[in-house]
Amino acid sequence: MTSTSPKSTPSLLYSVKRLELAIRSHLDEMLRGSGITTLQYTALTVLAHRDGISAAQLARDSFVTPQSMADMVRALEQRELIHRTPNPDSKRELLVYITESGRGLLRDYAAAADTIEERMAAALPAGQVEAFRTALGIAWSALRRQ
């Protein structure tokens, strides 16, 4: 028989979501006045690591729907933070690349983003930061598998 009494500690799902929302709040504040959103910033960071991918792959890696990414790509392209070129292997597909202006924007916010991450990890014992990163990666991989 299952108990209907509340748990004394929050669920892992709740804890992860709470952390995500706290990070999002700090990123929103960091980017205030930049002219881009946190989701656009995320897409630029993806491109900084995996340049020349399709908009569909960029959407998956940026955690947004393809429809949202289409709007985001247009906005980032208008700001000249990205550009698109035809995929030589597929006539109908365009590949998305970060521009030097996009890389410059990421450089402008790199120290502030590092500060957010350092603040998040500051209370963890030294050896636990990498363990935390590894555990998050393992959990993500486990949920990605179908």
Rank of each mutant, 00 (worst) to 15 (best):
H26Y: 06
V64A: 14
L47G: 05
R32K: 12
A70V: 09
T85L: 13
R74W: 02
S25F: 08
W140M: 14
R144H: 14
R74D: 04
T115R: 15
V46S: 11
Q57N: 09
V16A: 14
S101M: 11
T42W: 01
L21E: 12
R103M: 11
L95W: 05
R119F: 02
F63M: 15
R107H: 09
A70R: 13
M30N: 06
L44E: 00
R119H: 05
E20A: 13
V64H: 13
A122M: 12
P86C: 03
A126I: 09
R103F: 09
S141L: 11
L31N: 04
S8W: 10
T4R: 10
S25W: 02
Y109D: 03
A70I: 06
G102Y: 01
V64Y: 14
A142W: 05
Q146V: 03
S101V: 03
G35R: 05
D108V: 01
Q128T: 00
L27S: 02
D28M: 07
L19K: 07
E130T: 10
L136N: 01
G102A: 09
K17C: 09
L12W: 09
L94A: 11
T38G: 15
A43L: 02
D108H: 03
E93M: 07
A59I: 05
A110N: 03
M1G: 15
T115G: 11
I116N: 12
R79T: 07
I138V: 12
I36R: 08
V129C: 06
L58D: 06
G52K: 03
A75Q: 07
A22T: 02
A113P: 00
L12D: 07
L31Q: 05
A126S: 09
P86M: 04
E77I: 02
E100M: 11
M72Y: 03
Q78K: 13
D28W: 04
G102S: 06
E118G: 04
A142Q: 10
Q40W: 01
L81G: 04
L47C: 13
D108W: 00
L105F: 10
P88T: 09
R79Y: 06
M72E: 03
S11F: 06
A22V: 01
A48D: 13
E117P: 00
D71I: 05
R145A: 15
G33F: 15
S90N: 12
E130P: 02
R84K: 08
A142C: 08
Y109N: 06
A135S: 14
L21K: 14
H26R: 14
E130R: 13
V46K: 08
S34L: 08
I138P: 00
T42H: 04
A112N: 06
A111F: 08
G35Q: 05
D114N: 06
R24W: 08
P88R: 14
D51W: 10
D51A: 15
T37M: 04
H26A: 15
M1I: 14
E117C: 11
R107F: 09
L106A: 04
P6Y: 04
W140D: 11
A75F: 01
N87P: 00
L76I: 08
T99C: 05
R107V: 13
G52V: 03
L58M: 14
Q128H: 02
K91I: 10
L81N: 07
T38P: 04
A135V: 11
A112D: 10
S15D: 13
E29N: 04
L106E: 03
V96R: 00
E20V: 09
